[in-house]
């Protein structure tokens, strides 16, 4: 019985050693949040988690972090490790979203947009965002993240490499692959909708 087994395991190994991370500040969940909440928040969006689901998926990430933090041995940057968690949680979220047959919807224009742009510009912006969102949804998640960081958020490639714990050349090759996937996805969507050219 699992409960009994847990008790036996607990009694047998009351002080099982756990790897300790390198930071001076103890690695507890709230400390990880304080240090890297923004990184997790942005990473999830870059991995395709949309606003309505962001809070819940963010919480899922921290539940996983809480369960697995003891496995972080400091051999990589914490952001690299966190990105791995985000990637897996976002992938599970994507599968659920696909299962529900959700498709991205046009975002509402924000107040600043609405007041400073003409209606035709607003419409074009909405269509462009929707199109990009749909194309991005067809990218592999790791490539998607690199694409969004580099092309949309304009993060320098060296910084991306540092965050993800990969060589800069890997960032470039992922970006190259992501661009190909993005263009192919865009062409497929436009062929499907019968819409050509820019919105």
């Amino acid at each position: 019985m699992p409960v009994l087994a847990a008790l036996v395991a607990l009694l047998a190994k009351p002080d099982a050693p756990r790897p300790v991370g390198p930071p001076a500040r103890p690695l507890d969940l709230v400390a990880v949040h304080d240090l890297h909440a923004s990184f997790v928040w942005c990473s999830l969006q870059r991995l395709g988690v949309r606003d309505p689901d962001l809070d819940d998926v963010f919480q899922e990430v921290f539940i996983v972090v809480h369960k697995r933090l003891h496995t972080f041995d400091g051999s990589s940057l914490l952001t690299t490790w966190l990105f791995g968690v985000c990637l897996r949680v976002a992938a599970a979220h994507r599968r659920r979203a696909w299962f529900r047959r959700e498709t991205p919807t046009d975002e509402l224009p924000d107040a600043e947009d609405a007041s400073s742009r003409r209606p035709d510009e607003l419409l074009a912006a909405r269509q462009a965002r929707a199109l990009v969102a749909r194309a991005l949804d067809r990218l592999d998640l790791d490539k998607r993240a690199v694409f969004v960081m580099f092309e949309i958020d304009e993060v320098p490639s060296a910084e991306i490499a540092a965050m993800l714990g990969v060589p800069e050349g890997t960032v470039w090759s992922r970006l190259h692959a992501a661009r190909k996937q993005f263009q192919a996805a865009l062409a497929r969507i436009q062929a499907k909708t019968g819409r050509g050219g820019a919105p």
Binding site: D34, Q45, D51, D55, I152, A198
Partner: peptide, 26 residues
């Protein structure tokens, strides 16, 4: 297309306070 696409939204102070409370609860 990319010219129209908004950058990723960063975590604001309100979001941060809310998520911190939830994480503390976890």
């Amino acid at each position: 297309l990319l010219r129209y696409t908004a950058k990723t939204r960063d975590l604001g102070p309100r979001d941060r306070a809310r998520t911190r409370a939830r994480v503390a609860r976890i």
